[in-house]
């Protein structure tokens, strides 16, 4: 019986470590906000907070989609260019017409879905490494977008008021954007945790060979992950248009790395199998907040990328360290209580 209590102890330790990740991001956020507010009290104004949440929403949305892909031990680098393409495409779609907002959303997500499908098929059926495939589609989609835009831009004046309202309006004082993100995050998070097929994403990332032997439909799941990531990137593209109104061809340029950073900072293991969408979304919030803090503290915005990079390295080092610790803790329990 001693073995059982020891095992429980081991599990508790592991649980604590996993939960600690989300908690430590929260703690970092609180410290960051507290310090900044102490320096500049206007930071915590209603408008300030609202801005942070609005800015974080799109990044968090992308991070949720990216999480599904990364958990299966893959990566989607094309999301940034999909956002740019969809933002521009839906701008073209609505310009001068009074389109229904839902229709615009559907069109945007369809475009995203097609991009995701291409990635997914190449990765899962043709077994091309995800890094190469999505790097390729990143440039192809970007190229298409630039070619199409040809230096034009979408102006807020062309975008119907109903769509702009989606990006800047609110219900009961809560802006739509974070609301949409939270709904998507909770839905995806719940699916991944509570449904058998959701767990299979983790299984695939944790040990692909074992997943094959367990009869898991690996290709289908990886395809799904990419399509979800694409659809969410499409949604993010429409929201981008709704939020900013003015869109040039290279909207969200370079965001893929921001998204990946957010996901990794949020505790999703880059080698798959571990992490939650909640952590990823928190990671997005943290990165966005740092961006705002730098503005408030009048730090040159060039530093933002460097800080995001440093945070990424820190997150990965902490992950590695914790993984070693956890493994050792579990082993120790084994050694003490036989086999």
């Amino acid at each position: 019986m001693a073995a059982i209590t020891a095992d429980t102890g081991g599990r508790r330790f592991v649980d604590t470590v996993l939960r600690a990740r989300e908690l430590s991001i929260l703690a970092a956020l609180i410290v960051l906000v507290a310090v900044t507010t102490a320096v500049n009290s206007s930071f915590l104004s209603t408008q300030g907070v609202k801005d942070i949440f609005l800015n974080a929403s799109i990044l968090a949305l992308l991070a949720v989609g990216q999480t599904m892909v990364v958990v299966t031990r893959n990566i989607d680098l094309s999301v940034g260019s999909v956002v740019g393409l969809v933002a521009f495409a839906s701008g073209k779609f609505v310009a001068g017409h009074d389109r229904n907002v839902l229709l615009v959303l559907v069109v945007g997500m369809l475009i995203g879905a097609v991009c995701g499908l291409v990635n997914g098929v190449l990765v899962s059926f043709f077994k091309v490494p995800a890094l190469v495939v999505t790097l390729g589609t990143l440039y192809v989609i970007q190229g298409l977008d630039y070619y199409w835009a040809h230096g034009q831009q979408i102006n807020a004046a062309d975008v119907p008021a109903s769509l702009l309202d989606l990006g800047n309006g609110s219900v009961l004082g809560i802006p739509y954007l974070p609301l949409i993100t939270v709904v998507v995050m909770v839905a995806v998070g719940y699916y991944l945790r509570a449904y058998p097929s959701g767990r299979e994403f983790y299984a695939i990332g944790s040990n692909p060979d074992a997943a094959r032997l367990a009869g898991i439909a690996i290709r289908k799941r990886i395809l799904t992950a990419y399509v979800v990531s694409g659809v969410l990137a499409g949604l993010a593209g429409v929201l981008w248009l709704a939020r900013f109104g003015t869109v040039v061809a290279d909207a969200a340029h370079g965001w893929e790395l921001k998204v990946v950073s957010a996901v990794v900072v949020g505790g999703v293991a880059i080698v798959g199998g571990l992490g939650s969408v909640y952590g990823a979304a928190l990671g997005a919030l943290l990165l966005t907040t740092i961006g705002s803090v730098l503005v408030v503290l009048k730090v040159n915005s060039f530093w933002q990328d460097a800080i995001a990079g440093a945070l990424l390295l820190l997150a990965i080092s902490v992950d590695r360290l914790l993984a070693l610790r956890v493994t050792r803790a579990l082993r120790k329990r084994n050694a003490r209580h036989g086999a």
């Binding site: 767990r199 074992a210 199998g273």
Partner: peptide, 29 residues
């Protein structure tokens, strides 16, 4: 199999029942 084929990140119980988890309402685990 001769060489264990487990998912290190998942719980022991999930490892055993992967793909055949007992379901409750709405197909949840």
């Amino acid at each position: 199999y001769q060489e264990p084929t487990l998912f290190p990140d998942l719980s022991v119980a999930e490892n055993i029942f992967m793909g055949r988890q007992p379901r409750s309402k709405f197909g949840r685990i």
